[in-house]
Amino acid sequence: MNKARAFRPLRVFWLFLVVFFSAPAWAFQTKIVSIPSAAMHRAFDATVVLPADYGRGNGTTRYPVVYVLHGSGGNYADWTSNTQIGKLADRYHVILVMPDGGHESWYIDSPFDQASRYETYIGTEVVSWIDTHFRTIATRQTRAITGLSMGGFGALRIALDRQDTFGAAGSISGAVDPRNSEDEPGIDRVFGNPAHHADFWTRNAIVEDASNFEHAHIALTIDCGVSDFFVQSNRTLHEKLIALGVPHDYAERPGGHTWTYWSNSIRYQVLFFATAFHQNGWHGPAHLA
């Protein structure tokens, strides 16, 4: 009998044990939850990612929360389907929440469509539900919101309108001037006819509302790809914030309006938020000190 062959199963068994016990015992948890809206009389799905250590210990540790909004035509599953965003929950020990904002809601409470109350839903109802059902640190200092494209606009709009709720905000390839998106199918349903309601379009454009960041004390990060069709409006917003003396991070990187760009950008934004949380007194990962 070949001794080497006889002992091979034993060596395989020990190799299995070494690999099993050296691999991480925990990983981030992804949950799909249904969050009701009293404002819109229905419920919407949302993706929640919990860091690996959420389930460890005695279950009393609380975590900061980063809300991440999808773009036009998207839904609550976009970020987890197209990126590895879940790993960021583990890396920075934060809860990530990706709510559903409708296909073309622009995350506003529309005066033209009484059934579209997405700013109230995301900015108030979702936040309250998450704080009730998960172990969050329910303060503005440990709560951030960001998003891509339409979601970038929505994140900044919601943060400006709810400064007591969000202490940090970001925009990735943000449509910070919706007047550049008049041809977007369905946008006039929530913003109204641009010819008849130009004042509403202008009043809600982030580039025209930059001065409200001056006293908001929001940790702010904005980025856009150099080949993105929204890059000029993002530059305009950046220049206005500089002129106003508003502290903010601004970056342009190679890339366009694509998931390749967004999946890279979100890594920088969540790091920015985790650092802001730490500066506000959250005792998270030591390497953020």
Rank of each mutant, 00 (worst) to 15 (best):
N264H: 13
W259G: 12
I158S: 07
H248W: 07
S233P: 01
G151Q: 04
N193K: 08
C224H: 06
G186N: 06
D177V: 07
S227L: 13
L237D: 01
R135N: 10
V226A: 11
I158H: 03
W201R: 05
W262E: 11
T142N: 14
G225S: 10
F200P: 00
A155M: 11
H133Q: 14
S149Y: 09
P194W: 07
G152Y: 07
A210R: 00
H215F: 09
S265M: 05
H196Q: 15
D177Q: 08
V226K: 12
W259F: 11
R135H: 11
L156C: 06
T260K: 13
F191K: 01
A205M: 10
S233V: 12
Y250E: 06
D228A: 04
D164Y: 08
A175S: 15
T236Y: 04
F230A: 12
S149I: 07
F134W: 06
E208M: 06
T132D: 13
I158D: 06
N180G: 12
M150C: 13
A243T: 12
I266E: 00
I218H: 01
R179I: 09
F200A: 04
P185Q: 04
S173V: 07
D177R: 04
Q163S: 13
S265Y: 01
N204K: 07
R189M: 07
A144V: 01
G154S: 10
R203V: 05
T146D: 11
F230P: 00
L244D: 11
G151R: 01
R189I: 10
A169K: 02
H248D: 10
D249A: 13
P254E: 14
G170Y: 09
T258G: 02
S149C: 09
P247Q: 10
H133K: 12
N234A: 04
D209W: 10
P185I: 05
S265W: 02
V231Y: 02
T258K: 01
E239S: 15
H196K: 15
N264G: 13
S171E: 10
Y250A: 04
Q141L: 06
G152W: 04
T258W: 05
S265K: 02
R179F: 08
V190G: 05
G245F: 04
G167E: 04
P247Y: 11
H238D: 14
N204M: 11
V246Y: 05
A159P: 08
T142E: 12
V176D: 02
P185V: 04
E214D: 08
A216T: 09
D228R: 03
S227R: 13
V176R: 02
F134V: 00
T258Y: 06
P254D: 15
L220K: 01
E252H: 09
I206Y: 05
M150Y: 11
F213W: 03
R162E: 13
S149R: 08
L237A: 05
Q141C: 01
P178N: 10
R140K: 15
L160E: 15
H196P: 00
T260H: 13
F213Y: 14
T142V: 11
T258P: 02
